[in-house]
Design a protein around this nucleic acid. Structure first.
Lengths: 246, 246
DNA sequence: AACATGTGAGTTATCATACAACTATCCATG
DNA sequence: CATGGATAGTTGTATGATAACTCACATGTT
């Protein structure tokens, strides 16, 4: 009989990658590597199917997924094109209803806790006069909105995004834009936690540090600021004062 | 003859919504509105086709797009299920970033310079034995690949992604995955800059710091590591040795 | 009783083919 | 020169068939 072979699986599971997935990856690669820059018209579905030696169905499956993700755009009767990056969050507009659970929001804030200090650090070097003026404007908005929590929180988020813009780095900008939208959508719950008192204080100081081009100070303040926000939100949640989202 | 009617188009173009799009919208609504909570198994494709009075092709088209967006998950031979709606869903909007990846690798690395130290900091607290084993495995891969630059660089990227996974924060994971794809695509150029010598050194030390649960050290090493990568790449670029991607 | 194996139903993945719907272009016609 | 029609190329939808996969249950085997 011989002994059983259960320990140490020497045999690796065979590679079984779906055809459509392979097509998806190949097409994605062409786009990512820049072989097909924005605006390029792809070969027709029949052509692709022939070249890749798969059925048209598999090609279409891949094309559909890529368009859903915003990399492609297909025009009926005309062809399929590589999309410009311009259109920002067209798709996100479909999702604002999604209320995120608490854990999800903490994930987002935890991310921000790392990103925003870094962003403000870069911003101290690169912010223009216009950026600073814009930040000042938003800060004064916040001062006025001390009664309207919602508007206050909105301005708060805008402040952070403006700092991201000042980095001149598209990744920071894009990610921060998404985070703003998420928090905006789930704002009912976090408004209280944000706290007028701290908010104004930190934003004023951060703005000052930016003017002084004191990166270390700005980073420290930002980290403190986000930390306190998280802390507040946790306290509120534990006390059950805050939202439940369902 | 009468005058032409070109100004003010009172006549709106007739509604010509694609079938697959309608299916997409209907399914999406069921999910977003919570009628189909996470984990729900959808009716089979045949069933849906019958209920909606469309062909199975159209149903599948919609299903594919929804899975690409992360709302659904289809398991071959088993069925299609509603996925957990999490925050990282929004970050699918980052996908178009892939299209402009090449424009500036430095933007990407600058971003990584901020995020990866933060990620490794969180990872020191949360990494499981399995995570560490996986990192070890990748590290040994790198040791073997000292001749194959491409494979080496790929393992390098995988190392960073694995650290992101160890944070257990879906945002870190998602964004890092996209960054890996971007750098992967531009790899011909950065391979030289990565440098075998430093790479192994830093990764070994970072792994050690993770084992020792020394967050400060791990963060510092990571920052240094990314800094040097950027520096190398800049030197190479100035000398014109590095990539041009065409 | 415990385990291995076989079988079948149900499901998704892929294929091939055909036709419908749409777009752009060319070209003859008046 | 404007109009309309014909045409070729492309994407969208439909149909039917087959392959590949998963699960659950039945059937042996020990």
């Amino acid at each position: 009989m011989g002994r059983r072979v259960t320990e140490k699986p020497v045999l690796k599971p065979v590679r079984k990658e779906r055809v459509s997935r392979q097509v998806f990856d190949q097409l994605k690669e062409q786009i990512v590597k820049g072989k097909w820059p924005a605006g390029t018209k792809l070969p027709s579905e029949n052509e692709l199917a022939k070249q890749l030696n798969v059925s048209r169905v598999s090609v279409r499956s891949a094309l559909h997924m890529l368009s859903a993700l915003g990399l492609l755009e297909t025009r009926h009767g005309e062809g399929t094109y590589v999309r410009e990056l311009s259109g920002d969050l067209y798709f996100n507009a479909l999702f604002p209803l999604l209320a995120l659970s608490r854990t999800n929001i903490f994930d987002v804030l935890e991310y921000r806790r790392v990103m925003d200090p870094g962003a403000v650090g870069l911003a101290t070097e690169r912010a223009t006069e216009e950026d600073l003026a814009e930040l000042e404007r938003i800060y004064h908005q916040m001062e006025e909105y001390t009664v309207d929590y919602k508007a206050f929180a909105r301005a708060d988020l805008e402040f952070h995004l403006t700092i991201a813009k000042a980095t001149r780095n598209p990744i920071f900008i894009k990610v921060n834009t998404i985070i703003r939208d998420i928090l905006n959508a789930s704002m009912e719950g976090i408004v209280r936690a944000l706290g007028i008192r701290d908010g104004l204080h930190y934003h004023r100081q951060i703005l000052q540090a930016l003017r002084d081009k004191d990166a270390v100070k700005a980073e420290g303040l930002m980290r403190e600021h986000v930390d306190r926000t998280i802390q507040r939100l946790k306290e509120g949640g534990e006390k059950g004062e805050v939202y439940d989202q369902r």
